[in-house]
Amino acid sequence: MKKELPERFKSYKHVWVFIEYEHGEIHPVSLELLGEGRKLADKLGVELIGAVLGGNRAAMQDAVVEAWEYGADLVYVVADPTLEHYRNDPYTRVMTDLVNNYKPEIILLGATVLGRDLAGAVATTLLTGLTADCTELAIDDEGSLAATRPTFGGSLLCTIHTLNFRPQMATVRPRVMAMPGRTKGRQGRVIEHAANLQEFDIITKVLRFLPDRNSNKVQLAYADIVVAGGLGLRSPENLQLVRALAEVLGGEWGGSRPLVQKGWMEAERQIGQTGKTIRPKIYIAAGISGAIQHRVGVEGADTIIAINTDKNAPIFDFAHFGVVTNAIEFLPALTTAFRKRLSVNRLAS
């Protein structure tokens, strides 16, 4: 299909990032998207704009400043009591209204629970295209957004365009894009936009919010060091070896999908395409074959060390260091060696 952008869409300009702001904080994925959006905006020679919605304007100022410091030239702020807690209907109405008023050519959202709930509703209301869970975003020669995502269980990638409609919308999962640097003191502009909503006009009510207990929260996606096990560990008891190493390194632990299916660990700890995407400095994979669905979740790691008895295991195609040996024996040795080093050096310093 060729690009034949209808006249009414030609004025659509600038790259937007929906800033996911809840409980007084910006979701890190929005900062990652500001980093990615900055590149797209520079390529197109347009502005990078954040849209942040919330209940209390004064409390939102920190978020505005943060958006500037992570690259936004302008932030649209919509503060209204009806937007205090996320609900689909008021958020969809406000986002749709912003788009119809200010006409962006691209909108990026995090593929979080909130972002997916909102993106589908906004795109349908605007009758435009939405590409889900992108792993790569680029601008093609015609100035269109080329959004690449895994298909067919991760074995292939496809590039999707929204040629003849605007805005072009895409979601990206947390940690798929790198966290950009923060420029302290960088400033931009802000435009306040009225929500024009009344509480009695919104049918869905939040009766209660039950926060997850923090002690249970697995910080896998944002950990600097991750140790993971696979079926090669052979029994659920041996996952203890993975946990012990993670603990010595002050990191998180996780595993491949079959461990969740077998009930060896909770789904929160699954790494890969249908689990968490991680970008640690170090990823240690023990007894994991390196199937494509696992690979796509770990490729952002700086250094990958794989331990596997099979020298032809696919994981050695993308790991940086390999150790062809029995992980059940090697993990304790590695844990001991690290522990020794760390305690010796601590005494010395």
Partner: peptide
């Protein structure tokens, strides 16, 4: 509105793991 322009295999990493 969306158009699939290209389907392709992921690029293999140039170098294998150092054993």
């Amino acid at each position: 509105p969306t158009v699939v322009k290209r389907v392709f295999a992921p690029k293999p990493r140039a170098t294998k793991a150092v054993q």
